[in-house]
Design a protein around this nucleic acid. Structure first.
Lengths: 237, 237
DNA sequence: AGGCAAATTATTGTATGCAATTTGTATACA
DNA sequence: TGTATACAAATTGCATACAATAATTTGCCT
C-alpha cells in the first residue's frame, strides 16, 4: 500500500473516517455507494474492506455487508484490561530496540501533536496522538504484539474522540499532561530505560481512564437541583 | 464464514496447509493456479488471500502476489518473547470468564489431542493442539488480545511441525508432558484459578522452548569425531 | 385490520475479459 | 565479459456483467 492510487486513497480515508468517528461504530458500509464515492469499482473496494476487517476497523457479515467495528461498555472494559499490558510491553521493547531514525520520527510526531493540541481540531489531535503511538509500536519491532496493539489504537482513538473533549479546564489540563507524558516516553526510549518506559505506559492509560471517569461523572453541579444532603451549607444559585 | 462454499473451503484448506507446513513459509502463492485448484475464480480467491493476510497467514506485496508468512531466527526470538505474556494473559482471563460449554469444548479438544498423540500424524497432532489453544483464546473473551494470540498460534503450530518430531524417546516424553499440562490447564480454568493458569502458561512455553533447544543441539554424539576435551575418559565407539 | 405469502427490489457474491505492472530473456554495445 | 536496453511472457489489478441471497413491498386471505 504505497502508491497513490484511488484504492489506497479509499483505504486511508476509510481508516481516518473510522478513527475520527466520522463513520460511527456499527455504521453500515454499502459497497455500491462507497465505490462510487471513492471512484473505483466494487471489486477493489471489497478487497479494501477485507483488509480493514483484518486490522479490526470493520466487521464483515456474510451476504450482509460490512459495518464499522462496534464498541460497547463490555469492549470498553476489555480495552482497559488489555491496554496497559500490551502497551507496557510495547514501550519496553521500544526502549530496547529503538533506532536513531525512529527516535527522530517519534519526536516529529510529538511536535505535530503539540501543534494539534494548540490549534487543531479534535480529529487532528486524535490522529496526531494516534500517529505517535503507532511509531512506538513500530519501534518495538515485534510482529506478534503488533496486531493487538494496532487493534487497541483504533479504539483508543475512538474513545479519545468521544471523551476527551476539552469542554472544561480540567480536561484541557489532562491533555497537556498527556503531552508531557509523551515527552517523558521519548526520553525513556531514547535513554533505553525500559523500566521507566513500562512505568510510563501504565501512567498513560491511567490518565486516559481518569479522563473517561471525569466525562462520565461530571463535577460541579452538586446541589444544584436541591437534592443536596443535610450537611450542605452551600447556597444554591 | 459459516456456509460450506468453495470459498470457505479454499480458506480453510489454505489455513491448514500453512499451519502444517504443507505450504512452507515464504512460499509463493499464485492466484491463477490456486483459483483453479480450489475451483473458484480469481476474484473470491483474492478476497480469501486478503482475509488470510489480515490474520497473519500470508503477506501481500503490491503487484507481486502473495506469499506464506515468513519465519526466521529473528521472528523465533520475537515469538518466545511475546508468547508467555500473551498466553499468560489469555489463560488468566479464560479462568475468569469461562463458561460450562466452553469447558466441555476444551475437554473435547484435549481428548482429540490425546488420540492424535497416540495414533495420529504430526499434522493431526499439531492441528489438535492448535484447536485446544484456540479454544482457550475464545474463553478469554478479549477482542484486543485475540489478534496477537491468533498470530502466535499460527507460528506455534509451524514451529511445532518443525521441531517436535518424536524421533527419540526424550521428544515423545516431552509430548506426553505437554498433554499433562493441558489437563492441568483445564483444571485450573475450571476451578477459576487464574494464578495457577498464568503459571501453567509460562510452564507450557518453557516446555516448547526446551523442545526446540533439544532439537537444535542433539544429544548423544559427543566425542564421536574425536574432538572431545582432554578430560574425557569415555571411550569412543 | 392483521398476518402470511409471493413477487419485487436492493445488495452481496462470483465469473470473465481486459488493462497495467512486473519479470525474464535476448540482443546490442561498451 | 559485463552492463544496459528493448521486447516478450507471465502475473496482478480493475471494471463490467451476471448469479445468488437477503430485504421490502404488495396483494391476498382469514
Amino acid at each position: 500500500m504505497a502508491a497513490v492510487t484511488s484504492k489506497t486513497n479509499a483505504y486511508e480515508q476509510l481508516k481516518t473516517s473510522i478513527l475520527t468517528l466520522c463513520l460511527q461504530p456499527g455504521a453500515d458500509l454499502d459497497e455500491a455507494s462507497l465505490s462510487e464515492r471513492y471512484g473505483l469499482s466494487r471489486t477493489p473496494l471489497r478487497e479494501v474492506l477485507r483488509e480493514l476487517a483484518g486490522e479490526g476497523y470493520v466487521e464483515l457479515r456474510e451476504n450482509r455487508g460490512a459495518r464499522v467495528s462496534d464498541m460497547s461498555f463490555t469492549t470498553l472494559r476489555e480495552f482497559f484490561l488489555a491496554a496497559p499490558m500490551i502497551y507496557g510491553a510495547i514501550l519496553q521493547l521500544a526502549a530496547i530496540n529503538r533506532t536513531p531514525v525512529q527516535i527522530a520520527d517519534l519526536k516529529s510526531a510529538q511536535r505535530d501533536f503539540v501543534v494539534a493540541l494548540q490549534k487543531g481540531s479534535v480529529s487532528q489531535r486524535t490522529l496526531a496522538n494516534n500517529r505517535f503511538h503507532e511509531i512506538t509500536g513500530e519501534m518495538a519491532g515485534n510482529v506478534y504484539l503488533l496486531p493487538s496493539f494496532k487493534r487497541l489504537l483504533i479504539d483508543h482513538a475512538r474513545i479519545g474522540m468521544t471523551f476527551y473533549k476539552p469542554s472544561n479546564n480540567a480536561m484541557a489540563e489532562k491533555l497537556s499532561e498527556a503531552s508531557e507524558q509523551h515527552d517523558a516516553i521519548i526520553a525513556a526510549i531514547e535513554a533505553g530505560d525500559e523500566k521507566r518506559a513500562a512505568q510510563l505506559a501504565e501512567m498513560h492509560w491511567n490518565l486516559s481512564r481518569g479522563q473517561i471517569e471525569m466525562f462520565v461523572t461530571p463535577a460541579g453541579i452538586e446541589g444544584q437541583l436541591g437534592f443536596a444532603g443535610e450537611n450542605n451549607d452551600k447556597k444554591t444559585a
